[in-house]
Simulated assay, not measured.
Amino acid sequence: MNNLEIAILFKALCDENRVTIMELLKSGEKCACILLEELQIGQSTLSHHMKILCDSKMVVSRKEGKWTYYSVNENKIEEATHYLTTFSTSKKDKKCLCK
């Protein structure tokens, strides 16, 4: 992932509703109607949040009839996890040699 992709991905998680949506999707694919019911928000608000999550590629969608179904993109979550682990596995004992 490049820096722009990383920024888009983590920016997508900077909203409580989107974090809640990700929590709901952890258990599997959900229809937009279920997300609307769980979040108690309007359809246009849900569409806004889902666009951001889909643009970040953390969530994928598919149409079936008049409804859209959403699920977690496991590959993108693995990429984000890998990126975050690079912070904890970096060498922390490097000392500045500047004078």
Rank of each mutant, 00 (worst) to 15 (best):
N3T: 14
K30M: 14
E38Y: 02
V72G: 07
A7M: 10
Y83Q: 11
G42E: 08
H48S: 04
F87D: 01
I41Q: 09
K94Y: 09
E23R: 09
E64H: 12
S47G: 10
T89M: 10
K95T: 15
A12H: 02
L35W: 13
L36H: 06
E78I: 07
N2P: 07
E64T: 08
I52W: 05
I34L: 10
M50W: 03
T68A: 08
L46T: 08
Q43P: 00
V59Y: 04
T81M: 08
K94W: 09
L9I: 01
L53D: 07
A80Q: 08
Q43Y: 00
M1A: 13
C33A: 13
T86V: 01
F87E: 02
L24A: 09
S71C: 08
V72R: 14
K66E: 08
N17W: 01
G65I: 04
A7L: 11
Y70G: 06
A32R: 15
I52Y: 04
L25M: 14
N75I: 08
H49K: 09
K57N: 13
V72Q: 15
L36W: 01
K51I: 05
E23V: 03
N2V: 06
E37L: 10
W67D: 15
Y83H: 14
A12F: 00
V59H: 06
A12M: 03
E16L: 00
V60D: 08
E74A: 09
I8G: 00
C33T: 14
S56H: 11
Y70P: 10
S44H: 03
N2G: 12
Q43R: 10
T81V: 09
